[in-house]
Design a protein around this nucleic acid. Sequence first.
RNA 1: GUCCCCAUCGUCUAGUCAGGCCCAGGACGCCGGCCUUUCAAGCCGGUAACGCGGGUUCGAAUCCCGCUGGGGACGCCA
Length: 506
Amino acid sequence: MTVRTRIAPSPTGDPHVGTAYVALFNYCFAKKNGGQFLLRIEDTDQTRSTRESEAAILRSLRWLGLSWDEGPDVGGPHASYRQSERTAIYKEHCERLIEAGHAFRCFCTAERLAELRKVQLANSPITGYDGLCRGLSPAEAQKKIDAGQPFVVRMNVPREGVCVIPDLLRGPIEIDWRNVDMQVLLKSDGMPTYHLANVVDDHLMRITHVLRGEEWISSAPKHLLLYRYFGWEAPQLCHLPLLRNPDKSKLSKRKNPTSILYYERMGFLPEALLNYLGRMAWSMPDNAEKFTLDQMIEHFDLQRISLGGPVFDVEKLSWLNGRWIREDLTPDQFADRVAQWALNREFLMPVVPLVQGRIERLSDLGPLTGHFFAGVPNPPPPADFDGKKLAGDDVRKVLMWGLWHADALKAWKADLLSEALRTSADKLGYKLRDFLRPFFMAIAGTPVATPLFETMEILGRDISRARLRKALESLGGVSQKQEKEWRPEFEAAFRASAAEALEITE
RNA sequence: GUCCCCAUCGUCUAGUCAGGCCCAGGACGCCGGCCUUUCAAGCCGGUAACGCGGGUUCGAAUCCCGCUGGGGACGCCA
């Protein structure tokens, strides 16, 4: 049996370094064993998935040097590799489970479930579906369906005994079935949940080994149970330790840049980033710091994974990147890399309309566009942030609002930024011109620069956010207490926003 | 709160499975020095860890138990 692994990202945002990390391990494991590595898009969340995000993920993984034997762009014998195009398959499998008595239709409303949850939390430590609809007779269920009542499909779960999860790294993990919820398998919109789609696809696509994040351990019993219900052999499971923020919590964009696009724009070489991810929880037999993807494959061994969650340390990544730049590029290659990175049409064309009309000599380009090539530089001195109408504490407040927008905005587009910041200026009673000055200082480092919203779009969400954050820090930072004081006003301004993209989602 | 996972320098880690070679090695960072027209880079040196308590053993970072600490999961998100 040939080894087959996969990475199954959900296209709901910027490509995440955690995705690359898990992909790398799956890739190395497959290649080490002469097997195949697949890419499958898990876009079953219709409200959050976008084609744009999917394209960015594919592009980023390729940029890193990872390739897949089967996937939505390259096809393969088990197409489609996009779950939204496989809904008939999931429905049919779900039907099978219902007929076999392994699943049931549930007509409970969101309100009832919320109420149930509240009562449970108050009375016991266990939450979860109470099984009300499981008792419905086929006739009763049919009557509700005929009446047009929306429903989901839930799986039956044993009420006693333990589930043993054979984890390749941790040995058997035991979880009591009591702690496993009657998971929804098919949502009321007809889409499968992760649990169903994942199991069905991994089986149909002949996946033999599932290397995934540790966060999945607690739902592994559901997956194992589904394999059993279907009468399928489950793949080998291996849960990788999670990448962490410096405070040890699971790596998150609020605390750390997590987008691969950020690292690309910051000027990290793909081979250095991949090398660094390979140093997360894994080591070469000789403890080498620097190695290529091929070297990693050659020496790859699951036993060399350490289980403590590694902190993603940008300092060390930078050091490693420096070594790759200094030690592995000829002058010619270095020049090519610089061209690839920024001196190319793809990057420059969006910049051109921002500069062509405002220069007299080409040499004006340096000072005018330096901020496009600067990563996250040190901000100007605090006094430079003060304008005539907006100064001191208000500067920090305004930048804080900007940071909140950077977290909340559904897409990082100039028009959305424009709307968000114009509305903010209005709500806070500033003229746009006064309001924007701190942003120019934080983003471009000078009040004389390319148009702000377009500039921020080109720089990307993570770079922009990092610059805002750094500017705020240089201005003395914002205490949690202060943040709490300011937040309600911001939320009040946008919670009921007419523009959906500006809504605050907590 | 409940369930589960984890535990070596501030951080990434080697060593743990097959106990002695470890009063714990390497790397990042930091500090100092050398080199040098600056700054880097490079070279040399320093700083700093087996979470705690019990066992088992002639001997424990390594095995067992407890505690503590950290993390994850408890969604019609993945």
